[in-house]
Write a protein that binds this DNA or RNA. Structure first.
Length: 267
DNA sequence: GCGACAG
DNA sequence: ATCTTGTCGC
């Protein structure tokens, strides 16, 4: 009698109503999604590009991640960092311990992460520290520890958080979320394809024919980059390349290290 | 029916 | 996400 629906899944929502509600929210937010570059900025590739015709050179890049407590699964620490795009030094960091009771359900990651993310973002924007006004002027990009359009409904957490914040975001996944025929073995095939031997990122084209993201082919285990909001895939990949000292790009890696560290000390 | 399933 | 030490190599 009780709990008769979809009980075969390890993951589940408290009710079918919640599931429907979440789908509707994703669908609604997705209407605002922009999957191309719509900011007037560049990466400062060549000297002559800089400061010309009102084009902003990307000076800072943000990163966001959450770590969870070992023994208290609902206790978490969200961390927002800002790095100098050129030197990759952390120039701003803020962490917050929170309680997250929303369950993790594949395909709905953003519902767990959005509250802390928005809280940290607002705190940065409202702060009176002399650094922040500068950030507001030149800080235009955020990396999220989750996928963008590489998602069952084309609206992963990077898209979700990007639309909520109305900021450009890049999705970076450390594991593949199987979607549109893109399985681990399929990706392995693509990575080993001969005509890709000289590239460091290969496009991920699903069965639908759509390019949903790109996979790195540098390390044994690839990372998966996809468009979040207001950024093209080409730009997203370029930015990720330029911020990778190790497998995981620095904004994500630093946010991960700092959040884990903060959680350990404050709990 | 069974397996797969970002963090 | 988290559980987890040493160990091999530059």
């Amino acid at each position: 009698m009780e709990g008769s629906s979809k009980s075969s899944s390890t993951f589940h929502l408290s009710s079918d109503d919640d599931h429907k509600k979440w789908l509707e929210i994703q669908d609604s937010l997705k209407r605002k999604l922009i999957t191309e570059d719509d900011y007037n900025w560049n990466l400062g590739e060549s000297e002559e590009e800089e400061e010309s015709s009102g084009v902003q050179v990307l000076k800072y890049i943000g990163g966001f991640d959450i770590s969870f407590s070992k023994h208290h699964p609902s206790v978490a620490c969200g961390t927002l960092v800002v790095l100098d795009f050129k030197t990759l030094d952390v120039v701003y960091e803020d962490s917050s311990i929170v309680t997250i009771d929303v369950p993790y359900v594949p395909g709905f990651l953003a519902f767990r992460e959005a509250p802390v993310f928005l809280q940290l973002l607002k705190k940065m924007q409202d702060s009176s520290h002399p650094f922040y006004p500068q950030v507001l002027l030149v800080f235009v990009l955020l990396m999220i520890d989750g996928n963008g359009i590489l998602h069952p409904r084309g609206f992963g957490s990077a898209c979700h958080l990007g639309v909520l914040a109305d900021l450009p975001t890049i999705g970076v996944g450390k594991n593949l979320h199987h979607v549109d025929g893109l399985t681990s073995s399929r990706v392995r095939e693509l990575l080993e394809a001969e005509d890709n031997f000289n590239v460091d990122f290969i496009p991920l084209v699903g069965d639908s024919g759509n390019t949903l993201g790109a996979a790195s082919k540098g390390s044994f285990k690839p990372i998966f980059v996809s468009v979040g909001h207001r950024v093209s895939l080409a730009s997203a990949v370029e930015v990720v390349k330029r911020t990778c000292k190790y497998r995981v790009p620095e904004p994500i890696r630093q946010a991960d290290i700092i959040s884990r560290d903060y959680l350990r000390k404050h709990h």
